[in-house]
């Protein structure tokens, strides 16, 4: 028998994020090469802006423009950038307090090497060529020789978010943030045993040493007794439809044409039902108690569907406990 199985599992989605007023202003600003902060209750200017005061939880809406130049407050050389990080070649992660801001923003600093980076160094924004209203509109920071222009940004009159947004045409109200994570899925020993048997077109459950009932598919433990199961026992191949529904709507990514019957099937010898599709009989003739058997197709891991055996229907009393 082959050993435990593994398979790649990809979790990927282009998440659509609505922004609310503060993130909308901030990201629209970046698109227009303007960095906006928000003034907190204690007078500090927070960049990146938060919608709510970290100290008091009050709503913050007073936007303030800060400079695209600033000072590194801490840094960390990244010798081996990973996919999707801001720069493909080694760079420094930096927290930058922009001139006019009281808090620091996380981003990347393009520098030739760690010897060229230090806390307190001056940097400026390098804007991305194509800007859409995203944090990546700041391509990265780069070293900058100019002195801090203390107070310059503070001299700008604070303005309300409303009027400012109207200065931007077509404000960004939502962003798409694609994310892909790659996993290795390991179903474990019991499911691997089950899958190995399926490859031989056999359905093999596992019997609980305590209650003697047969779990199929097995998951390594009897769920009611909380003890490990190891004793394999073949079930089926024939079984009884305990209940079902007729599917008239195409499920996402399903290749099957509707209508079809999705059923719970108690295989002979199993103490719980598994599920499968019923074919070889018109949908409206499928019924509870129908006797069925699996139909295997080459290359498929699971039975393609179950079809009627032609036996008389099972009496309700024989399967009602399995509903």
């Amino acid at each position: 028998m082959s050993g435990p199985l593994t398979a790649p599992l990809v979790v990927e989605f282009p998440f659509t994020r609505s922004l609310g007023p503060v993130q909308s202003a901030f990201l629209t600003g970046l698109r227009e090469r303007v960095v906006l902060g928000v003034r907190a209750g204690d007078g500090r200017v927070l960049v990146p802006p938060t919608e709510y005061d970290p100290g008091t939880a009050e709503e913050l809406r007073e936007l303030v423009e800060v400079a695209p130049t600033g000072t590194v407050t801490t840094w960390a050389w990244n010798p081996a950038p990973r996919p999707r990080q801001p720069l493909p070649t080694p760079f420094a992660w930096v927290l930058v307090r922009l001139d006019g801001a009281d808090t620091a923003l996380l981003h990347a600093l393009d520098a030739p090497g760690p010897d060229a980076v230090r806390t307190g160094m001056r940097v400026r924004v390098r804007w991305a060529a194509d800007r859409t209203g995203a944090i990546t509109d700041i391509a990265c920071f780069e070293p900058y020789e100019g002195e801090p222009r203390e107070g310059e940004a503070h001299e700008d009159e604070p303005y309300e978010s409303g009027p400012y947004i109207r200065e931007f045409t077509d404000p960004v109200t939502g962003i798409t943030t694609p994310a892909r994570l790659d996993y290795t899925y390991a179903p474990g020993s019991a499911q691997s045993r089950y899958l190995a048997a399926l490859a031989r077109h056999r359905i093999v459950g596992e019997r609980c040493p305590a209650c003697r009932r047969v779990c199929v598919p097995p998951r390594g433990a009897c769920p009611t007794c909380g003890v490990a199961t190891r004793e394999q026992t073949e079930v089926g191949p024939r079984g009884t439809v305990t209940t079902y529904c007729v599917v008239n709507i195409k499920a996402r990514n399903a290749a099957i044409d509707v209508p079809y019957v999705y059923a719970h099937i108690a295989l002979d010898g199993a103490d719980q039902a598994l599920h499968g599709r019923i074919a070889g009989i018109p949908c409206d003739r499928v019924r509870m108690g129908l006797r069925v058997e699996p139909v295997w197709t080459d290359g498929a891991r699971h039975p393609d569907h179950y079809r009627p055996t032609g036996e008389p229907d099972a009496a309700y009393d024989t399967y009602k406990e399995l509903l």
Binding site: T74, Q85, W93, H107
Partner: peptide, 30 residues
Amino acid sequence: AGDLDAVLTRQLDPYCTAPLWPGPADLAAL
């Protein structure tokens, strides 16, 4: 099960930080 450094980036502010994909060691280094 996953690439842990990538997975844990998903804990970060989804608007301004997670899109930069900084891993837990990167942040701990700062």
